[in-house]
Lab assay of single mutants.
Amino acid sequence: KRLCLVCGDIASGYHYGVASCEACKAFFKRTIQGNIEYSCPATNECEITKRRRKSCQACRFMKCLKVGMLKEGVRLD
């Protein structure tokens, strides 16, 4: 089984260019469509796991980008 490159949960397929789970796919889409900017309360190096993926949105979004999710893949309509 493929794992989500962002949080390590089971991937539902390839989304925005990267093997990812439904939760991270939806999080990435919401962030881009809403043009949301997050800031990390710590040092921008929070560990993102299935259990902790909700704890820091800034680091989760940075990890989405780091593993290769493409903003261009999100439709803005």
Score class of each variant (00 low, 15 high):
Cys64Asn: 04
Gln57Tyr: 06
Leu5Asn: 07
Arg75Met: 13
Leu3Trp: 04
Lys66Gln: 11
Ala23Trp: 15
Lys63Cys: 07
Met69Thr: 03
Arg52Gln: 14
Ile32Gln: 05
Cys24Thr: 00
Arg52Thr: 13
Val6Pro: 00
Ala26Lys: 07
Ile10Gly: 14
Ser20Ile: 15
Lys29Phe: 09
Glu47Trp: 06
Glu72Ala: 10
Tyr14His: 11
Arg51Gly: 13
Leu65Gln: 10
Arg2Thr: 07
Ala11Leu: 06
Tyr38Ser: 04
Lys25Gln: 15
Gly8Ile: 03
Cys7Glu: 01
Phe61Thr: 01
Cys24Arg: 02
Ser39Trp: 15
Lys50Ala: 14
Lys63Val: 04
Leu5Gly: 06
Glu37Tyr: 02
Leu70Thr: 12
Cys40Gln: 03
Glu22Asp: 15
Val18Ala: 07
Ser39Cys: 15
Cys40Ala: 00
Cys59Phe: 04
Thr49Trp: 08
Thr49Phe: 07
Thr31Asn: 03
Gln57Arg: 08
Val6His: 00
Asn35Cys: 09
Cys4Asn: 00
Met62Lys: 14
Ser20Leu: 08
Gly8Lys: 09
Lys54Val: 12
Phe61Gly: 03
Lys71Tyr: 07
Asp9Phe: 04
Gly17Asn: 05
Lys63Gln: 07
Asn44Gln: 12
Ala42Thr: 12
Lys29Thr: 15
Glu22Trp: 09
Leu3Ile: 15
Ile48Leu: 07
Gly13Asn: 05
Asp9Cys: 01
Pro41Val: 14
His15Lys: 05
Gly13Cys: 00
Ser39Tyr: 15
Tyr16Ser: 06
Asp9Trp: 06
Arg2Ser: 08
Leu3Met: 10
Asp77Cys: 05
Arg51Gln: 14
Val67Ala: 09
Lys63Leu: 03
Cys4Thr: 01
Cys46Leu: 01
Gly8Pro: 02
Thr49Pro: 07
Glu72Gln: 08
Cys4Pro: 00
Gly73Thr: 12
Gly17His: 05
Lys66Thr: 14
Cys46Trp: 02
Gln33Ser: 07
Ala26Met: 09
Lys71Trp: 07
Gly68Ile: 00
Val18Ile: 12
Glu72Met: 04
Val67Tyr: 05
Ser20Gly: 15
Lys25Arg: 15
Ser20Ala: 15
Pro41Ala: 13
Thr31Ile: 06
Leu65Thr: 04
Ser20Asp: 07
Glu72Thr: 09
Phe27Glu: 03
Glu22Asn: 15
Lys50Ser: 08
Leu65Met: 08
Val74Glu: 13
Thr31Ser: 08
Ser55Phe: 14
Leu76Gly: 13
Gly13Thr: 04
Cys46Thr: 01
Cys7Gln: 00
Leu5Phe: 09
Ile10Tyr: 11
Lys71Gly: 08
Gln57Glu: 12
Cys40Trp: 00
Lys29Ala: 15
Gly17Thr: 06
Lys66Met: 13
Ser55Gly: 15
Ser39Gly: 15
Ala42His: 04
Tyr38Val: 03
Cys21Ala: 00
Arg53Phe: 13
Arg30Glu: 14
Ile36Leu: 08
Glu47Pro: 09
Cys24Pro: 00
Glu45Asn: 07
Ala11Met: 10
Ile36Cys: 11
Arg60Cys: 12
Thr43His: 04
Lys54His: 14
Ser55Ala: 15
Phe28Ser: 01
Tyr16Thr: 05
Phe28Trp: 14
Gly13His: 01
Asp9Val: 04
Ala11Phe: 07
Thr43Pro: 05
Lys71Thr: 09
Leu70Pro: 11
Glu22Ala: 12
Val6Arg: 02
Thr31Met: 07
Val67His: 06
Val6Leu: 01
Gln33Glu: 11
Glu72Trp: 04
Lys71Pro: 08
Cys64Thr: 02
Lys29Glu: 15
Lys1Gln: 05
Ile32Trp: 00
Gly73Ser: 11
